[in-house]
Nucleic acid binder design. Sequence first.
RNA 1: CUCUGGCUAUUG
Length: 355
Amino acid sequence: IYLSNLLIEMYSKCGNLEVAREVFHSIREPNVFSWNILLAAYVRHGRLDEARRVFDKMPERDSVSWNAMTSAYAQKGHMQAARSIFEMMPRKSIVSWNAMIQAYIQRGDLEEAKVLFDKMTERDAVSWTVMMQAYAQRGQLQEAREFFDNMPKPDVISWTAMVVAYAQAGHLREAEELFRKMPDRDVVAWNAMLAGFVTNGHMKQAREVFEKMEKRSLVSWNTMISGYGRSGDLENAVLLFEEMVERDGVTWTAMIQGYALNGHLDQALKLFQEMDLEGVVPDEATFSITFTSILTACSHAGEVPKGCKFFVEFQEDRCLQPTIDHYHGMIDVYGRGGKLQEAEDLVESMPFPPE
RNA sequence: CUCUGGCUAUUG
């Protein structure tokens, strides 16, 4: 049962909801964990109705089940429903409070989030960190820092989030200083510092950090490639790209974008095709993003025929449904290429309401 | 073994 539970989770996290369901149904006596994993799977995929059905059908629920439902409603913007689930819970854990606070923050209601935070009798690093981030994202860096300083036991994530907050606000000095004081820096923390230099245009310093890293992840490499591309240093971008032993969809998109940004549409498109030749199969969500970047590359270059070609291929060769973003990209291709009639026709024929 | 918070690519 323990192994089956792991299986359900694995499949649901790879986007294989159907298989996850099958595994669940093959268990003779699912326990609370099995039910919760299935519930979480539906929530992750945004299937609120199915999640609700599972929740109602569960023989017993623990606080994990209730928390998952709270997040499910919150994620769909149904705050009143989320809140009433929260109120109905037999026993609230710290996670229940954290999830509810995070829900309000996502809806932009920092005031209500703060009310809940103040009501908590016990808080953990997550409680403090989500509040800290909320203030930082609203531009209240000093407030954010107060949460950080008042936090009894900040963990690696709290530290990293604060570094990111400074870096994104352009306060690299503070970011660096905090980073240096950080007790246990993991790869994500290093990557965050790296990205701080990159997004502020300091590739030289970024490179130093990159070289100094004891352990690097795919994200480290991707960050550097993207940064070199943005700063016009295609040579270094390509060097790193070729040096990589393992690449993911982000790597390819970053490199493609690097070419596109620097006026090499031909190379960008070539790389896109090379992805196929190399047998790279990113998941659909990732590929969708790569494809969006191809369309905007074509539109910026005024390449109507090429944009059309890829747009058609996307549907016919790969049998994928264009998303609203893809239509947007394709409409731009036509619009910027002076094909206003075609752009209008596409707007009218797309299966989305035009904004 | 399941629920909440941190790093990279696209559009906005």
